Amino acid sequence: MSTTPLDRRPTIAVGPATWPVNRRLLLIGVAASAVAAVAFLVSVAIGFTTPVDVARILLGGGTRAENVVVFDDALPRALIAGLVGFGLGLAGSLTQLITRNPLATPDLLGITAGASIGAVAAITLGAAGDAWLSDLGVPVAALLGGLIAAAAMYALSFRRGSELSMSTLRLILVGVGLTAMLQALVGFLLARAQEWDAARAQRWIVGSVSYGSWQVVPAALVAVVIGTGWSIIVARDLRTLGLGVDTARGLGVRGGPAIAGTLVVAVIVAALSVSAAGPIAFVGLLAPQIALRLARSGTPPPITSGLLGAVLVLLADVLTRTALPDGLPVGVVTAAVGGPFLIYLMITTARKATA
């Protein structure tokens, strides 16, 4: 770590590449990681033991019975909550960053709805006899659905002659309309599905980690690795793009490839995260906006947004298992918090536009 006379901020150097270290972001990241770790231990411990004992068991000091309870039952659920929250928060920050609009989240752009239709089709049609859908599996079907929805959104929002190649207002309007259409298609599939398959799909649609298992952990983990890796690789370009496309072009940053790549990564991360726990509502909206306000920056920082997303989902899971009726999905809690926040954002965005 070093400093330069012109920039007193510390930097991390790896060969010829250097990354400036924002002390405030670093502090927020450490604090969010600590809160997420505590919430993770509490989530594993609920109904069984204490967080201190959970830490002991995870470090290899548990008995055979304790290991079975923790590693086979409680740990996958907590891991999925943390990883999915991180992925959705990071994906939301990426879409908000490239569009420079707080309303441009995977929820509102149709990405999670596309992933939902893919997953629901795999659950309902696969069980009804379409073997190829069952062979695909929920993660792959969700990823394909998210990519197809994103491609449709991009094609309908295309604007010739623009570096971004999309109208932000048109993008959001198309996303809202696309989401409504896909949700109607989800309802159609549920209406024609067998009762058991419909119930299973319905639990998934609300957004729940209650039935999490080790089978879906890899999809959520891959989403986190891809999103984090991309955010680090293009961190400098993303910060510059946050100043505006014209400013970024003046500073020598090619906006087109960075924006296109970031959009693809956001779709992949959101779709894989949704495949693991369903479309947990408003995490992609809440986490980046909280991170932006805590960091006092012009754009939502992706990694910090991911950490805060993990905190949100883990705390929501703890809340549903302690203070709220048993079996309530975490998506209900995040929607209850995110709905009013969305209204607040829409009002403030409208006021800024007319100011």
Rank of each mutant, 00 (worst) to 15 (best):
G110R: 10
V140N: 15
A119P: 12
L144C: 03
A131D: 13
T124R: 04
A128C: 01
P139Q: 09
V140M: 08
G118E: 10
S134F: 03
G146N: 03
S134L: 10
A122Q: 11
A131Q: 11
A122C: 05
A122M: 08
A142Y: 05
S116T: 06
G146A: 00
P139T: 02
L109N: 06
V140A: 14
I117V: 08
A151D: 07
V140T: 13
G126N: 10
L136Y: 06
G145P: 08
L125S: 02
S134D: 01
A119I: 03
L108P: 01
G145V: 13
L109P: 05
A151P: 12
G137V: 04
G126D: 07
L108T: 05
L136E: 15
A142L: 04
G114H: 10
W132E: 13
A115R: 09
A128M: 07
G118C: 06
A149L: 02
L108V: 10
V138D: 00
A127L: 13
I111A: 00
G145T: 14
L143P: 03
D130W: 12
G118D: 14
G118K: 02
D135R: 12
I117C: 12
L147Y: 14
D130S: 11
G114V: 02
A141T: 15
L109V: 03
A151N: 09
G118S: 11
D107N: 06
G114Q: 11
I111H: 00
D130Y: 13
D107T: 02
A131S: 15
A113F: 01
V138C: 04
A127C: 13
A131W: 12
A141M: 06
G145M: 06
A149C: 00
D107A: 03
A122H: 06
L147K: 09
L147H: 13
A150M: 09
A141F: 07
A113E: 02
A113T: 07
D130E: 10
L125A: 05
L125T: 00
I123F: 01
G110K: 14
I148E: 04
A121F: 11
L109I: 15
L143I: 07
V120M: 03
G126K: 12
L133G: 01
A150G: 03
A122S: 15
L133W: 07
G114R: 06
A150T: 10
G146M: 13
L133P: 07
I117E: 07
V138E: 03
A119Q: 13
V140W: 14
I123L: 06
A121K: 12
T112K: 04
I117H: 14
A149D: 01
L147A: 04
G118Q: 09
I111T: 00
V120Y: 08
P139I: 09
G145S: 09
A127K: 14
G146C: 03
A121V: 15
V120K: 05
A113L: 03
L144R: 10
A113M: 07
L147G: 06
L108R: 01
L147P: 15
T112I: 01
S116V: 09
G114S: 14
A141D: 01
A119L: 04
G118A: 08
T124Q: 00
L143W: 11
L109G: 05
A115G: 14
A142Q: 04
L143M: 05
S116P: 13
T112M: 13
V138R: 02
A127G: 10
